[in-house]
Design a protein around this nucleic acid. Sequence first.
DNA 1: TTGAAAGCGCTAACAA
DNA 2: TTGTTAGCGCTTTCAA
Lengths: 343, 343
Amino acid sequence: MKTAGNFSNSITIFEVASQAGVSNGTVSRVLNNDPHVKLETRERVIQTIQDLGYVVNRQARSLAGGRTQIIGILVPDLGTGYIGEIIQGIDSELQLAGYDLMLYTTHRTPVLEANYVANLTQGMVDGLILVLPKNPEDYIDLLKAHHFPFVLVDHQGSGQDCPAVGATNWQGAYHATEYLVNLGHTRIGFITGSMDMGAAVDRLEGYKAALWASHIAFRANLVRESTFHQLDGYNSAMELLNQEDPPTAIFASNDVMALGVMDAVRERGQRIPEDISVVGFDDIPQASIVHPALTTVRQPLKNMGSIATQMLLDLLKNPDASKKRIELPTGLVVRDSCKPPHS
Amino acid sequence: MKTAGNFSNSITIFEVASQAGVSNGTVSRVLNNDPHVKLETRERVIQTIQDLGYVVNRQARSLAGGRTQIIGILVPDLGTGYIGEIIQGIDSELQLAGYDLMLYTTHRTPVLEANYVANLTQGMVDGLILVLPKNPEDYIDLLKAHHFPFVLVDHQGSGQDCPAVGATNWQGAYHATEYLVNLGHTRIGFITGSMDMGAAVDRLEGYKAALWASHIAFRANLVRESTFHQLDGYNSAMELLNQEDPPTAIFASNDVMALGVMDAVRERGQRIPEDISVVGFDDIPQASIVHPALTTVRQPLKNMGSIATQMLLDLLKNPDASKKRIELPTGLVVRDSCKPPHS
DNA sequence: TTGAAAGCGCTAACAA
DNA sequence: TTGTTAGCGCTTTCAA
C-alpha cells in the first residue's frame, strides 16, 4: 500500500545531479560537506539544489547508513511546567543545529523506558536525551556497550560514570536553609522528595549541613519524607504544623510541594509569610505567579536542557569527547514568602 | 560514514524469514496484516519475530512506500501549560495506537511553519497535527491537494473546510459574561486576544452577545484589544482601571492575561474579588493554583488533543472519512475570583 | 576530483 | 497462499 500522504512530486538527488550536470555521488558529497569537490562544482550543485528546492529524504539517508538528524528525548511526562522548561532548552538548541526532535513520554513506566531506548537506538535517532530517567541502570550499560550517544538530564548518576547535566542540589538546599536561619528561624521544617532520586537525597543533606553549620540541632520530627507531588506536600505540611512546637518555616524539596504547603497553611487560617515562611525548589513558572510569590531555589532548567543538547551534539561530532557530568549552579530567588518568625 | 550509534546487531526481515522457513515477502505480509497468509504460517512467523526480538526498521519501511508510524505535531511553543495539556492528550492517544510523536515548535514563525509542513510531508510522518497554526492558509491547500492527512487544533478555520477540533469559544464567553451579569456587574471590562485568531474574535462576540441579551449597552471604552500575553493583560487592566467609571469586573480572553490582571489589581492596592472580579479563559493548571483561585472558562485541552488524534488516526485508516470540524463544549469553572460588586 | 554501482531494510507488484 | 524481485533515495566504496 502506497502511503496515502507522501507528496509525490518530491525531487531526488538524481534530478539535482542531472540538472547540474554531475553524478548523484557528487551531489551527495556536496550534501555531506565532503571536501573532495571542486569549489566551482560545489557552487553549481548548491545553486541547483536551491533552484529546485530540493530537500534530502531522511529515511533514505538513514537507511543508507547516514544520520537521521533526529534526536530522541525521553521524558517522564509533560504535566508540570518543570519538564516543559527543560524541553524548551533542548528544542531551541536542536533547532539551531538543524536537528529534529522525537518526543517520548514514559509516564514513569520503567518497561516503556527500556523499550523505547531499545527501539530508538535501532537507527531511529542519532542520539538520546534522557530526562529524569527512572531506571537508567537497565539500559545505560547497553547504550555504552554500543557506543550510542546519550546524555542524562537531572539525574544523580550514582556511581554510573556517564555524560549528564544536573544542578547543585546540595548547595541550593544549603543556601535556602541558611537564608531561613539568617532570618531568625530555628524550627525549620523540611519535606523531602522521593528518596529514590539522588536529587532528593542531596537536598536533604544540604538542609542538614546548613543546620549543622549554624549549630542548630537536627530534629527528625521536623522532616517528612514525601514524593514531589502537591498533595503530599499538603499532607506533610499538615503533619508538620499539627504537632506541638511546630516549625516557623517550611522548606519543601520542590515548588509543586511548596504550593501544597501554602494550601495547608492557608487552610489552617495562618498567613504566609507572617505566620509561616515557605521556600520551594526549582523555580517553575508558577512560583512567581502564586500569591505571595514563592521564594525558591532556582534550577536553570532551560539551561540544563540546552547544555545537555550541546553535550550530545558534541558527542555526535566527536564520539571520544570527554563524557563528564556537569553541575549547573542553583541560586536562591528571594520573593515574598518568607519573613522572620514572630517570637 | 556509518552512524556511530546504531546498534549493529539489529536483525532484518530476512533473518526472520529464513528462521521461519518462509520468504521475506511472507514476513512482510504478516507484518502488515495482509490476510493472504495461512494462519499456521502467520503464527510461525510471529513466533520467530518474538524469539528473535525483531523490530521493523521504520526508515526502510517508509522508504519503500509504507508508513512510518510517526505523527508530526507542530506547536507554536512550549512556554505555557496550555500547549502542554494539548500535547498530553495527543501523546497518550498516540501511545495507545503505537505511533511515535515528532515535535516541532514554530515559535510563531510562519516561515518555519511552512517549511516544516513541506519537510514533514515528504514521508517523514504519516500525518500532521497542527496546534494553533499561525498561517494555515499558506499550506492547507497544499496538504489537501496532496491528500495528506492532517487535523487542526483550536483554530477557527475561517471558511477553510477541513478537519479541525476547537472549543465553543462564543458560548464560553457568553456564559462567563452572563455569570458576571447575574452577580450584579454592569460595568464589565473585556480584554481580547490577538484578533487575528478566530478564537479571540469569537470570545469577544460571546461577550457582546451576553451583554446584549441582558440589555446592557456595549461600551467600547471597557474593551481593550490585546495579545494573549500576561504583560499585555496587566497593561490593559491598568488602562481599564485607571479611567473614570472603571469596570467592577474584568474578563480576560485567556488565563495568562487574567493572571496579569490580578497583578495589576493588587498593585493598585485593590482586592480580588472584593473590589474587582476577575474571570479568565482556558483553565490552565495555574488557574487553580493562584490565590484567589481563578474563575475561568474551561477548555477541555487534553480532550481536544486526544480527539484531534483520534480524528487523524481515523483519517489514516480511512482517507475518505468525513472531514468535519468538531467543537468541544466549554464550561464555566467557578472558583474564588468573583463576587457581586459593592455598590 | 569525479562517476558508477552496490547496498541499507523494507513494500508491493508480479509470478507461480 | 507464497516466492521473487524491482525499486524507494541515499551513502559510500572502488575505479577512473
